[in-house]
Amino acid sequence: MAHHTETGESFREQEAPVRDYQEGKKPTQEDERAKKFNDLERVIRRYSTEAGQLIRILQKAQDIFGYLPEDVQAYIAEKLEIPVSEVNGVVTFYSLFITEPKGKNMLNICMGTACYVKGAQVLMDTLKEQLKIDEGETTPDGLFTIKSTRCVGACGLAPILVANENVHGKISSGEIKKIIQTFRKGESVENQKH
């Protein structure tokens, strides 16, 4: 376990900004990051008492950071006293975990069968064309990320676009263009249809 203690110390050094922040200095980007690590620490403390909660911790970590960069994975591995490779193995296995920062708005096209036969591919093509990026990519301005998602289970309303958390049913290419424009204007869209 010598290895663990070693890297553990190196981590404590990285945590230094936490102390600065607590001393009431002007918050910087680094401070914000330190605050996130603080939140993560709390999550880990809450769940690590129970066995087998790695996935839950990773989900919470992703909620905090928006994605799971290498240092976050290493931090979690350290705290749980498991190899980083194991954490990374889990992160890369599940499709909900991402290791690159995502855009401000997630546009998910449901690619379940029901949506597919109702033209989800056309919607995906529209999205790609409108934003000039490919699936899984983020626009250079950091506003949008496109993803395809597995069935969200609202097949009665196919085809479906999930914009951030909102499910938009029976959507058309035209509506997608409108939603993109609304987001561009910095407004959050409410469910437009129905």
Binding site: A51, L54, I55, V90
Partner: peptide
């Protein structure tokens, strides 16, 4: 966390214990 194979019972068991 988004893996279809986890519906298979032995895979599900691994996923429950965080693997």
């Amino acid at each position: 966390a988004g893996a279809f194979v986890c519906g298979e019972e032995t895979a599900l068991l691994h996923s429950i214990i965080g693997q």
